[in-house]
Design a protein around this nucleic acid. Structure first.
Lengths: 195, 195, 195, 195
DNA sequence: CATGAATGAGTTTTCATTCAT
DNA sequence: GATGAATGAAAACTCATTCAT
């Protein structure tokens, strides 16, 4: 029987704090968000946050790592490693889009904090890991003469930037991110990088 | 009689403040930058800032408008309105790249503050104006069947996102933004949108 | 049936708390010691302390009274009431020294908290009682023309101060409190007060 | 013309803060004193203290150094270096007593914070310097066979302890520190250490 | 006009104490 | 009785802004 309000540190409370922090940091930024606001939104007292996170910095890093890892997993879990690249590209595009649409605040939070000075080594490593995954796949398919023979970093930057741009436009309401539109966007991007 | 340091506000001081603010806001963000730091970097007293700008918000908006307008001008001044779109695209790509490379802090500042809550109506309008310019040109060339017949906003978002992505990667040092590389990037993006 | 950990408050726990409090208060002072630290050091929960002591103040007073009384007892129990004063002085000196060396933390705690504002009436009374004992013996021996005919409080203050000074220097490591050295110190002090 | 309320950091304000801190720290201790209390007593705002002192620790160290140095000076300035030791001892005793009676709060503050964990190296050095001065003079006069041939630290500890004890008793009101009484105390202490 | 010391409300963080389990 | 998570008032400290000089 699941129990609530027990004596052990409650995962629920930890989650509530992470969720409140995500919402506020993604909207107002790290320095623009006061801790009492976080505690109020999480429906806990100010002091309680510090039972779960050592400091405000520790909190923002926990949020970052949680969502960066969730994003990576939701893209990479069961990724068709051996499929033709065009199909891999489609899967990547679809999953990334889905993640950003299912978790618009997490997507905005990650975009906003990508290279913030208060991210710790672990957060930076998580970020690096995802980046490297993309680089490796792209490089392999350049060797196979499927992708243009330019600097791999360039192709990744183009795709990541284009996709982010589309998703941000969607979040802002400038664009209706229908399946059809995302398919069109994918087609455009594919043209950009394919040999 | 030449007059220096007289009763009237000095444009030099105003510029020094705007420059200091640009440097600090682009690195630490708006809420992460203390006003005394700005005044120190600008080599003026704390009080002096308030003779030129009503508040911290007014200052960040002044920085935003100054650089957004500078960017628009440096792209649009003498823009080849009647040239074929492929050439217009090339000019746009070149000028945008040049601006971002000549003013990396301004580019980073604009990216970081694009949709901040403390931007006022005037800042938003300036932002809108630039966006609309692009939309209009793209829409026109869709009619001419030169660009893909998708949502115009999509094409703009793709190009803007891709270009920003490449320039950010350059700023981060992941990419060496040589002329050759920027030409390759342009080629990729052209493929993405051309019919 | 042997009963451990039953319903009644455990003297062991009470002792553990008093000991932890002694250690921490003597090192960091009253206001410099957090209650959770005390509970951790005593290996009980934070709430448990409050079953044994009403408040932090009640705790520090309990520590004070316990050790002040222990000190008095260890000096006065079986004190040679009828012996010549020189011998009484020797016994006092020996026993005080022994107590301070056997219980360095208690000695430091008592010195540190002697006149703290948070000591209650009972603590002050205990303090007074010890002081009066010394005064009475000293006064009696002034009448007998064994001690100098100065203000009795002066003689007590001199001896108590000198002895404390020596013991503190020992605690700090500036002085090696050998039996020989303590004998020398005693000889000095005797010279100071004897007629 | 002496000017008040000028634009440069005011020595008056700095002094007011040091004085307020001295009063409160000597009565309630370091951890027992809240910064807003200090600012209120000094008649400045909470933030102003931090223009003059980096932190609460920096403040307590400034108070410590100021008064330790003042005490050393008031004892050592024009000290009769070449006079016979008995006279030197008299001068020391007189000046120390005078300092403690003229500055009872400073005396109590110094006694209370002698070996606090938050004292920095500079404070410890100042403390050491005074201690060493006494050791040197005492050692010299042991060589001259004027003082007892015991551990020099012992003699210093005895004298310092005895004198402190008397002065504390005076502060507490247990003893009326008349000139006559201080002379008697000095005579006692001299007996304690002279050969 | 320019200054920068001063302000005090607001920030992050701590901790004595409580109370549901 | 014992626990320790939770509380929230209060602590140390920061900073946008003002104003006497």
């Amino acid at each position: 029987m699941a129990r609530t309000g027990t004596q052990t540190p409650s995962p629920d409370k930890r989650e509530a704090i992470l969720q409140a922090a995500l919402e506020l940091f993604s909207e107002y930024g790290f320095n623009g968000t006061a801790m009492p606001l976080v505690s109020e939104r999480a429906a806990v007292s100010a002091g309680t946050i510090y039972r779960y996170f050592e400091s405000k910095e520790a909190l923002v890093n926990a949020v970052y790592q949680k969502w960066k890892e969730t994003m990576l997993e939701s893209i990479l879990d069961g990724f068709p490693q051996t499929a033709p690249f065009r199909e891999q590209f489609h899967v990547f595009w679809q999953r990334f889009s889905r993640f950003a649409q299912d978790n618009p605040m997490a997507f905005q939070f990650l975009e906003l904090h990508h290279h913030a000075l208060y991210l710790d080594q672990r957060s930076r490593d998580t970020e690096q890991r995802g980046h490297r995954q993309m680089l490796d796949i792209f490089a392999e398919n350049q060797r196979l003469q499927i992708l243009k023979p330019f600097d791999t970093e360039l192709l990744v930057a183009l795709v990541w930037g284009a996709l982010s741009g589309v998703l941000k436009a969607g979040n802002k309401g400038e664009l209706n991110l229908s399946q059809e539109l995302m398919d069109q966007a994918e087609a455009c991007c594919w043209e950009a990088i394919r040999r």
